[in-house]
């Protein structure tokens, strides 16, 4: 649960707080922030996502909520779809952009245009995933409310 909350908070923070701030910074400042931020994100995000999904599934198996006979099975399947969309976006767009930024920053003369393009992709997709996280929160609230 803690890792799940961390995943949601980090995505929303990146998309809706860091993103707009980054857009108003000077290019050298953006590069400096990106240089320090992105290596941490490569470690943090896959970890919180993997732990959330693995632990969440095991908890569901233990509690029997993943069974097709569960009362809110339809809502559970809806959450699978939302998480599936998040996974495809994260694996296809977010993580490649993250790795590409890291590699570009390690060059003796990083190309600011490439970093800017990839950071935009990173920030926008973080925001989209954050919104999808809100959708999972709504589904969980609906399930908890009975």
């Amino acid at each position: 649960m803690a890792f799940g909350a961390a995943w949601t908070i980090v995505d929303l923070f990146m998309g809706f707080v860091i993103g707009p701030i980054l857009g108003r910074m000077s290019v050298p400042a953006r590069i400096e922030l990106t240089t320090k931020l992105m290596p941490k994100m490569v470690l943090i995000m896959p970890t919180v996502v993997s732990v959330t999904l693995a632990a969440g599934w095991q908890l569901g198996v233990e509690m029997g909520t993943v069974d097709s006979s569960y009362y809110h099975h339809g809502l559970l399947v809806a959450s699978y779809v939302v998480v599936g969309v998040m996974a495809v976006i994260a694996l296809g767009l977010l993580e490649p952009a993250n790795i590409a930024i890291l590699i570009e920053l390690k060059k003796p003369a990083p190309n600011p245009a490439v970093i800017e393009k990839l950071m935009k992709r990173f920030i926008y997709t973080s925001g989209i995933i954050g919104l999808l996280q809100v959708a999972t929160l709504l589904i969980m609230t609906r399930i908890a409310a009975g």
Binding site: L91, G92, E95, P96, I99, A100, E104, V114, L118
Partner: peptide, 12 residues
């Protein structure tokens, strides 16, 4: 997934 990561890095 590694293919997409490798492609994104190589294209830029």
């Amino acid at each position: 997934v590694p293919m997409m990561i490798g492609f994104t890095v190589a294209r830029y």
